[in-house]
Design a protein around this nucleic acid. Structure first.
Length: 477
RNA sequence: GGCGCGUUCGUCUAGCGGUCUAGGACGCCGGCCUCUCACGUCGGUAACACGGGUUCGAUUCCCGUACGCGCUACCA
């Protein structure tokens, strides 16, 4: 087999859909696994939907996710340009070839006529498709009208036989030709439709495998017919299962976050999102669920891609993100955490202290967006005591613990995390309290709560002055 | 309406005719760990859509039904 070349071909219509990311990922994994090439191609053929900055955004997201490609708008390559809007001449030439070969024809039908045609078809429960009116216009007449009238160009789909898609994931799927529409190839504004541009570019860019979402399966026979009309070999197709909303409809805005940018803002790590999304419709066949990108590359095959759509379960994503937060190198965790604290305006005024805060809450953190909530106790100047905390503070023995603690504290001008062991041991000795009876009053007095991160870590962040202040305050409750 | 795809615990999934009293993960519940929460750890909960075939034997193969979804644009 010749070289493996796949492409990721998004439309620049704004944010990056997580479904797009998954498609990009699978293409990436397939390319890398087979030592082939991945091409990024921008399908900007719909001028009405184009969004400024969307391409830059797309590129940024791919880079964030760690998905690098070999050819693309910002990377060059021998098969450019990689913007379809810059390939218009190519499409025109190819359409002309099709018309000359009687494989396509101009259509002059107005929007209104098509509209009423569809209404009639719907009323009679007939399949809704172009009725072929302009198919039979004599060539010379058509040629003349083309110069004068607004028109589109349609593919002349055979009325007999069937077209078979041999899908790498779904197997053989057959479509009857007479139920295939005469697809518009060239719009009246001179831009190609997805179908034309896609086929022409995939051929010209020597794409060997078309890996895309399942929503494209119904139009694939038209694409195959197009390849045949041009006399080209068809690439292999693989249609990925859809990503679904909790109600099992196609994953969409309105039912939650679908943009990769949304997840970035939630404080999801790229490795977590990638890992999670890789498992939506693919698994290795064993029990492993945590994969690095490299492991995914090694393990990925189309054979193990599922057919059924997969619900995007935010719960599991957040769990997985928490897993990554706890397992990435501490250095990286701190670096990212510090960035987030800065962004969120969470600052103790001291970098070391900020790091200590991050270390203290690490086991409880699932996303970085939870930072304000999880770190709130470290930034509070006054305490709101929980009822249960007050009960601990007001226990008989507590006052004694507090007094002893204050006394012990005096002998430590500077407090380190290790000192706490000694301090608390000292308190334990002099009061006879231990375990919960010893620690809970202290926790309650200092945080106003009966739960939270490990106390030594909390105390380390608070420092001697704040601890002393809160303990004294508790003494008067 | 037409065409197409799909259907194993609530969710992601393993299973490729007997190994299934159906395995793992998230969630949920409980135990342990522990000053608490979390983490970790151990255990529990929960599924083969339905009906026909084929077969000695179907979660696994075939057909049908149901349900879900996708497509049905001069959007991709």
């Amino acid at each position: 087999m010749s070289e493996i070349r796949v492409r990721f071909a998004p439309s620049p219509t704004g944010f990056v859909h997580v479904g797009s990311l998954r498609t990009a990922l699978f293409n990436y994994l397939f390319a890398r696994h087979h030592h082939g090439k991945l091409i990024l191609r921008i399908e900007d053929t719909d001028q009405t939907r184009y969004v400024q900055g969307a391409v830059e955004n797309m590129i940024k997201v791919l880079s964030w996710a760690g998905l690098d490609y070999d050819e693309g708008p910002d990377r060059g390559g021998n098969f450019g340009p990689y913007y379809q809007s810059q390939r218009l001449d190519l499409y025109h030439d190819h359409v002309q070839r099709l018309i000359d070969a009687d494989q396509a024809y101009p259509c002059f039908c107005s929007e209104e006529r098509l509209q009423s045609m569809r209404e009639k078809q719907a009323a009679h429960n007939l399949p809704i498709m172009y009725d072929g009116t302009c198919r039979h216009i004599p060539t010379d007449v058509a040629r003349k009208r083309m110069r004068e009238e607004s028109h589109v160009v349609r593919l002349k789909v055979p009325s007999q036989g069937e077209t078979v898609v041999d899908d790498l994931i779904r197997g053989r799927v057959a479509f009857r030709n007479n139920l295939l529409d005469d697809q518009v190839l060239l719009k009246s504004d001179g831009y190609p439709t997805y179908h034309l541009a896609n086929v022409v570019d995939d051929h010209l860019m020597q794409i060997s495998h078309v890996i895309r979402g399942e929503e494209w399966l119904p139009s694939t026979p038209k694409h195959i017919l197009l390849y045949q009309a041009f006399g080209w070999h068809t690439p292999q197709f693989a249609h990925l299962p859809l990503l679904l909303n909790p109600d099992r409809s196609k994953l969409s805005k309105r039912q939650g976050d679908v943009a990769v940018e949304d997840y970035q803002q939630k404080g999801i790590l790229p490795e977590a999102l990638i890992n999670f999304v890789a498992l939506l419709g693919w698994n290795r066949g064993d029990d492993q669920e945590i994969f690095t990108l490299e492991e995914l590359v090694q393990s990925f095959t189309l054979k193990r891609v599922n057919k059924a759509g997969a619900v995007f379960d935010l719960h599991k994503l957040e769990w997985m993100n928490g897993y990554y937060i706890r397992h990435i190198k501490e250095e990286r965790y701190l670096q990212i955490g510090l960035q987030w604290m800065g962004k969120l305006g969470l600052d103790s005024g001291n970098r070391q202290t900020n790091e200590n805060i991050l270390k203290a809450i690490r086991p409880a953190l699932n996303t970085f967006a939870d930072l304000p909530e999880k770190t709130a106790m470290f930034f509070a100047d006054t305490l709101n005591y929980e009822e249960e905390a007050l009960q601990w503070i007001r226990k008989e023995k507590s006052k004694e613990i507090f007094s002893r603690l204050l006394k012990e504290l005096e002998s430590y001008p500077q407090l380190t995390v290790n000192d706490f062991g000694s301090v608390m041991k000292g308190v334990q000795k002099s009061t006879g309290c231990k375990g919960q009876d010893l620690w809970m009053p202290v926790r309650a007095a200092i945080t106003g709560m009966t739960h939270g991160p490990e106390l030594p870590l909390v105390l380390l962040v608070f420092g001697k002055n704040k601890i002393t202040r809160f303990i004294k305050q508790a003494l008067n409750l």
